[in-house]
Nucleic acid binder design. Structure first.
Lengths: 340, 340
DNA sequence: CTGTTAGCGCGTTCAT
DNA sequence: ATGAACGCGCTAACAG
């Protein structure tokens, strides 16, 4: 149906091979006059190389697979943008898959990318505590066949990637908060089976302990806005209504969770930060538009994505990188006058 | 390098054809005993069908291309999620391209999708006033070769899609605002070369005129957060500082722009809505976390994406659909006591 | 420098 | 019901 290279060759009165050489990058270029004729024919006929056929013949697809939990989550969409920027105009196309936090869907995505023979697979969702053996095996065989695996967040056996030092970052964040005067902390720890959740909560709690403090409460739940909303609501309901002359500071292991927590706090008639202070983690772009400004640990999300994209392009030379977040205190953790 | 179907066939002691029949959907199934043996061999060897080879042999890729302006923009990421939901577990993979609002990059994206022989292309960025002839020609030839084109927003010559009735929606929004007591409007009209921008602004202005009102100002700029920020800043600077006993209401042709405008307003020391009211358009999820709640015209963004995905699956039977937005007034347009 | 030809991995008629 | 053989569109050796 579509125009084939053969058609172009015929139209230009040259052989298939010659047409191939001029239209797609080859070592030495054919004669200028011939080249022009071929290009003209291609243009006239509206020729488009069949990427599938090229991939089959070249054994390389110029395809990269990105798996996220939810593309509508600012954390992931920002990373996705970074990846695209990193890929730049290399001609590499991005295949996107979302898992909705279901491990089976992540496996399915990887499986699908393997079928597509993507040159690389970027895993941006958090790794679980007990990593699925099936996933590991899959990734292993992908790598054996020359596939590149880049993991964002935690290091995964024998893969390159951008590691985020969640623990240290959380410790630093806790330190800043304590320095600013906070003493009574609650931790919305998210899903305890996700490394990201766990590391962030642990780092924070460790710092508290080392400072001689201990959390007023640690609440687990889903690693999402809704999860935090519910966890926070439950926590507030369970509180004795009289207590607290002193301001509470709620550390949420992600900004998205902080947003959910804030909603719960407000619905219960309390104010942020006057009644309860809130801190998040990530510094997603959304925070720019939220009032009060939410304190957080800033991660260069777009850059992280960009680095991942660049790693893909630098084929093989993919190194591991470690990034830490920077505490950024804004209004949401301002100490209320009269408190503390 | 990777395991081929041939390898599986050998391992199972059957022919290539038989292996193909059992592993990939064929009309009649081979004997059960044979099938099991083949499946076992495939499992043992870790076989993955080569999607490229399949595509070449079948002349169908199970690939869909989605082009957005910016995947980190909540408007687009929400639609993207919808598309993925719409595609469901059909096995269709999503190819993502971002244009950064540059028409040439949109063409490049379409060109690339055509090379990939995607079964369909979904265009979600706004169409321009004078549509690029090159794009139209490209799309035409894509369709001739059996490609499906789905446009979200405006109808585009001979393509299916989800049309958004921006004009009527804006009229209704204006009506609600007027009914609620607003009289003095400013329109941040965005890019006058984008149909979305233009239609929304025009619909709004038309309603004003019909009601005997006229806009205090119409300011153009980029159809983005930054564009709105700058436009609003300029407008505020240009105002005579004494005027305005009466509250102003700024209509932004998108929520993202509304967010930029609000920032500009606040930076100039004014409050929303006490000093200036603000309305947006789209009802992006971000609004849930913004204070004060921003009035807007609600569009079922995720559904729109989902419909697009479903249209792709229903091959050919793709119809045109028209959706209108629903005005939702929240705090950002609350009339300030003493005003009006 | 150009043309011929043999695969790339798989789906699918066509015989058997 | 199963197997042999051809073709999908293109690249890359090899010949000329």
């Amino acid at each position: 149906m579509a125009i084939r290279l053969t058609d172009v060759a015929n139209e230009a009165g040259v052989s298939l091979a010659t047409a191939s050489r001029v239209l797609n990058g080859s070592a030495r270029k054919p004669a200028a006059e011939i080249s022009d004729r071929v290009r003209a024919a291609a243009e006239k006929l509206g020729y488009f190389p069949n990427a599938q056929a090229q991939a089959l013949a070249r054994a390389s697809t110029k395809l990269v697979g990105l798996v996220v939990r939810d593309i509508a989550d600012p954390y992931f969409s920002t990373i996705a943008r970074g990846v695209q920027r990193g890929l730049g105009d290399s001609g590499t196309q991005l295949l996107l898959a979302s898992t909705d936090s279901e491990p089976e869907r992540e496996i399915e995505a990887v499986r699908s990318f393997m079928s597509q023979r993507t040159d690389a697979i970027i895993l941006s969702g958090s790794r679980g505590l007990s990593e699925d053996a099936a996933l590991l095996r899959l990734i292993g065989s992908y790598q054996e066949n020359g596939g590149q695996v880049i993991v964002i967040g935690q290091p995964l056996a024998s893969t390159g990637g951008i590691q985020i030092d969640n623990e240290t970052t959380s410790e630093n964040l806790a330190e800043e908060l304590i320095r600013s005067g906070h003493r009574r902390f609650v931790v919305l720890a998210g899903d305890e089976n996700l490394l990201t959740s766990r590391d962030r909560a642990q780092g924070f709690l460790r710092k508290l302990k080392r400072t001689g403090l201990s959390a007023v409460g640690v609440v687990h739940g889903a690693f999402s806005r809704e999860g935090a909303y519910m966890a926070m609501s439950d926590f507030l309901r369970g509180r004795k209504s009289e207590e607290d002359a002193q301001q509470l500071c709620v550390f949420c292991v992600s900004d998205v969770m902080a947003l959910g927590a804030i909603r719960a706090i407000r619905e219960s008639g309390l104010r942020v930060p006057e009644d309860i202070a809130v801190v998040g983690f990530d510094d997603i772009p959304t925070l720019e538009d939220v009032t009060p400004g939410i304190s957080t640990a800033r991660l260069p999300l777009e850059e992280i994505g960009r680095w991942a994209g660049e790693m893909v392009l630098s084929h093989g030379e993919a190194r591991k990188t470690v990034v830490a977040g920077t505490p950024v205190l804004r209004e949401s953790t301002k100490l209320h006058a009269g408190n503390q």
